[in-house]
């Protein structure tokens, strides 16, 4: 149990996929303008991360490893991720059309979101077992959500701020993103102490 908590908390804060590993920057900058679409996007990413991990882990251990086909894991994982992204897209279009419209191109782009592929590959690299992998994926997704929600708040403040004309828009956003990510360095080494 303690081990799971460490994995979960460190996936959310210390090894935050967006702010510490710099994966999935595209939706981080693209969908963080409004808090509603940020929440929707994060929920979609959490779902895809969880389901992708649940499915790819057995595929890797049962189908690929016994036959020495580990080198094909990226192809197989992308296939599975694409499947779940399509599923999410179909379901969202059916049940939450406003969210589907506000996410726009960023929804299908979850397929190539390196945070999702990153979770599945890192689970293999770190030699987690199935349950640990799922917890890590959940933590990764929650970390993504935290980063997106935090940053959408920052961006709303940024819109009202008086900044020089040449910094307005993307330059100021990128600087703000770097400052937010610097603040996450502060979590380094905290987790081990938390669960002693």
């Amino acid at each position: 149990m303690k081990e799971m908590m460490i994995i979960l908390v460190s996936a959310i804060f210390v090894d935050n996929f967006v702010l510490s590993k710099f994966l999935g920057i595209c939706p981080f900058l693209g969908v963080s303008k409004k808090i509603d679409s940020a929440v929707g996007m994060s929920l979609a990413v959490i779902f895809v991360m969880l389901m992708a991990t649940v499915v790819t882990y057995p595929i890797y251990t049962i189908l690929l490893v016994p036959f020495g086909l580990e080198y094909l894991k990226i192809v197989a994982f992308i296939l599975i991720i694409a499947l779940f992204v399509q599923l999410v897209e179909i379901v969202l279009q059916r049940f939450v059309p406003p969210l589907y419209q506000s996410l726009g191109i960023y929804l299908p782009l979850i397929t190539t979101n390196c945070a999702v592929l990153g979770v599945t590959l890192l689970n293999i690299d770190k030699e987690y077992d199935f349950l640990q992998s799922v917890v890590n994926a959940l933590g990764g997704g929650l970390g993504f959500m935290l980063a997106l929600i935090l940053f959408s708040g920052v961006r709303q403040r940024l819109q009202d701020a008086e900044i020089p004309q040449f910094f307005k828009g993307m330059p100021a956003t990128l600087i703000a993103a770097s400052i937010v990510s610097v603040s996450f360095v502060g979590f380094n080494g905290v987790v081990e102490g938390l669960f002693q």
Binding site: L64, L69, L72, V75, A76, L79, A82, L83, L87, I90
Partner: peptide, 13 residues
């Protein structure tokens, strides 16, 4: 393996 994987996901979709 990939044929089957593709088929299954295609069917699901």
């Amino acid at each position: 393996i990939f044929l089957i994987l593709g088929l299954v996901s295609g069917l699901l979709l």
